[in-house]
């Protein structure tokens, strides 16, 4: 790691005041930032430690339904919280599958969406040609090893995917990220948090410099929800493809469906078309569900080695709908 100066925020105001300074980053769980520092992906001059801030790790019920989760809540504490586990199984499952128990004891729910791609070119121990890591240097994965890369929303500047499991669940749940900044608070829909590469793949999310997520709001409970994560190793591995599904059911009929795919694009990918078409369909009608989901992949576009992920993503979504329907509140 290059040298940096370490400061400890005593309060949110303190963090926001200093966080807008040049070459300054925030430190929460540290499970990503320390690796970026070691790899040279981040080279800050100042690191602001947020972990001693108080009052930002609570999980509280919102009046009128829903939950508010403090950004500094550790992943395990979120996943194992009764209200989360019962009301939002998709989130609980996504968190428990996201990393090892040790990592989940460090990582925070507010920090997790900031995870960067697992693209091997981006993560190398030295800088390889990569527009995300070094703008203008090209995308090595476009015609290289891209079997774990995007099938949606990519362009020639970047074909990477966003790997966060919790973020995929949060997108399926229509969660809101509550942020603060020197210039005021904002509420950002989870689905608008990550941004597609465009011409600036190094810009990964909608936050302004110095802006902090302080809480995550979940709307009404989604007990019929499930998270399916596919990978060749059973645990402690990033997804090849994942699917987060939340259903509202009237009897066996689907009255609302929300489906987000993970590790298929630089943001969790909602299957909006399928979500509309699934309304009124029986949750037990596997053939109809499959047909609808397969029909919603019009925008999918394979790279040289990622075509199989299209099939896998369709199958994962179909299966996750079934798992969600069977989840018992």
């Amino acid at each position: 790691m290059d040298s940096f100066a370490y400061g400890r925020a005593s309060g949110i105001e303190d963090a926001l005041a200093e966080g807008s300074g040049p070459n300054t980053v925030f430190l929460a769980g540290g499970t990503e930032l320390l690796n970026w520092l070691r790899l040279g992906i981040a080279k800050p001059e100042r690191v602001i430690d947020l972990t001693q801030l108080t009052g930002l790790a609570e999980i509280a019920r919102l009046p009128g339904g829903g939950l508010r989760i403090g950004a500094l809540a550790r992943l395990n504490d979120v996943a194992l919280n009764d209200d989360v586990a019962r009301g939002y199984p998709v989130l609980s499952q996504a968190i428990l599958k996201s990393a090892s128990a040790q990592l989940r004891n460090l990582a925070t729910i507010g920090g997790n969406p900031f995870q960067k791609t697992r693209c091997g070119y981006f993560r190398a121990e030295e800088a390889l040609p990569c527009n995300k890591r070094n703008p203008g240097s090209g995308c090595s994965a476009l015609n290289g090893i891209n079997d774990r890369h995007a099938i949606f929303g990519w362009n020639e500047s970047c074909v990477a995917t966003q790997p966060s499991d919790p973020a995929t669940a949060l997108v399926a749940l229509d969660a809101i990220f509550v942020t603060v900044h020197r210039e005021g608070e904002r509420r950002i829909e989870a689905t608008d948090f990550h941004i597609l590469p465009g011409d600036t793949p190094h810009i990964e999310n909608a936050l302004r410099h110095g802006e902090l997520i302080v809480g995550i709001e979940l709307p009404a409970a989604a007990p019929h929800s499930a998270y399916l994560k596919l990978r060749e190793r059973e645990s402690y591995e990033y997804a090849v493809v994942s699917a987060a599904v939340a259903l509202d059911l009237e009897g066996e009929r689907i009255s609302r469906a929300r489906i987000a795919l993970g590790s298929v694009a630089l943001k969790p990918w909602r299957l909006t078309e399928a979500e509309h078409s699934l309304v009124g369909v029986s949750a037990n009608d596997n053939a109809a569900i499959r047909k609808i989901i397969e029909g919603s992949f019009g925008e999918a576009k394979a790279l040289t080695h990622s075509a199989y992920k299209i099939t896998l993503a369709k199958n994962a979504a179909v299966r996750a709908v079934r798992l969600a329907a069977r989840a018992s509140p």
Binding site: R118, G120, Y121, R123, A124, E125, G144, I145, E232, R233, E234, S235, Y236, E237, Y238
Partner: peptide, 16 residues
Amino acid sequence: FLSKNLAGVAIPVNAD
């Protein structure tokens, strides 16, 4: 070798 680490290269874990 593209990935020179234990996240980009899988070896069995206990759950396997």
